[in-house]
Amino acid sequence: MTALTGAVVPRKYLPVLVTAGLFLAMFIAGGTRYEGFFSAQVVLNVFIDNAFLLVVAVGMTFVILTGGIDLSVGSMVALATMVAAVLLNAGWPPVAVIVVVLLIGAGLGLGMGCMIHFFEIQPFIATLAGMFLARGLCYTIGTDSIPITDPTFTAAAQTQVPLGGELWISPSVLIAVAVVGIAAYVLHQTRFGRTVYATGGNEQSARLMGLPVARTKLGVYTISGFCSALGGLLLAFYMLSGYGLHAVGLELDAIAAVVIGGTLLTGGSGFLIGTVLGVLILGLIQTVISFQGTLSSWWTKIFVGLLLGAFILLQRVISGRKK
C-alpha cells in the first residue's frame, strides 16, 4: 500500500491531502447534522472570523519552515491593536497609523531575528522574551480596552463585499487572501522562499552550499513580525478596540494551524495551503460547537488538542517511513 500511495501522490503532499480530507469530512458531517450548516456562507464566516489568525499563521509558516518558532505573535497582535487605538484617538490619519504599526511589527521581528541569528539564542527563548516584552508594552500604554471610532476603521469593520447571491466577505478576508497569495508566490517562486526551505532542511548544509542563511533567518522573523502587526490591524477592524488582553494564546492557535496544515515542526517541509486549511479547520470546530449550542467552548480546545496529537503522530509516521 505504501508503494501504491507513493506512486499516486508524492509523499510530500500527503499531510496536506489528509488535512483537506479532514476539512471536507467535517464540513459534510456538520451539514448532515445541523440545519443551515451546509451553506457557502458558513465557510465564508470562518474566513471572516479568522482572517487575522490566517495572516498571523502565514508569518508563522515562514518561521516554522526554517525550523524555528515564534511565540511572540499573540502579544504582537495585542500591541498592534493597542498602538493603533491610541494613535487613532490622538488624531493620527489612519494611513499613517497603519504604516507605523506595520513598521513596529517588522522592527520587533527583525530584532528577535538578530538575537536568534547573531547571538545564537534558541528561537523559543528569544521569541518568549519578545512575547513578554510586547505584552508588557501593551500595559504601559493602557490597562483598559480603548475603543476605536475612526471612520476608516469602522468602515473596514462594517463593509460587506458582495460575492454574488447572498454571499459576502469582509475587506479583511480580501487582505488575508492577498497575503496568502503573495506568501505562496514568495515561498515557491523566489530564491528567498527556496532558501527558507533549504535552511529548514539542513541549516549547516545550506550555509556550506553558499546560501544566505543569515539574511533568510532575519527575513522570516521580520515577516512573522510584520504579519502579526497586520493581523493585529485586522483584529482591530474586527473588534474596533485596542486591548492588552486581545489575542491571549493566539501564538498557540497559529502554531496549531500550521502543524495541522501538515508543516513539519522541524522545518523544511510544508505548504502554505496547508496552513490555510489548518486555520479553516480550527474555525470550523468553533462553528460546529456553536451550532451544537449545548457544548461549552472548552470543547474547542479539546478537539484542537486531539487533532494536534493526531497530526503530530501522522507526521511521525510519514517522516519515519522515509528512513
Binding site: Q189, T190, R191, R194, T195, Y197, A198, G200, G201, N202, Q204, S205, A206, L208, M209, G210, L211, G268, S269
Partner: peptide, 30 residues
C-alpha cells in the same frame, strides 16, 4: 567543495540541490 558527509538539503528536489542560489530567474521569479 564536495564534503564527505553530503551537504545538501534532502527535503529539496534534485534540481534545486544542483542549482539553488543560482537558479535561472526572470524578474526575480524562478
Amino acid at each position: 567543495t564536495v564534503y564527505q558527509e553530503v551537504n545538501l538539503c534532502p527535503n529539496l528536489s534534485v534540481a534545486e540541490n544542483v542549482l539553488i542560489g543560482r537558479e535561472p530567474r526572470r524578474f526575480g521569479r524562478i
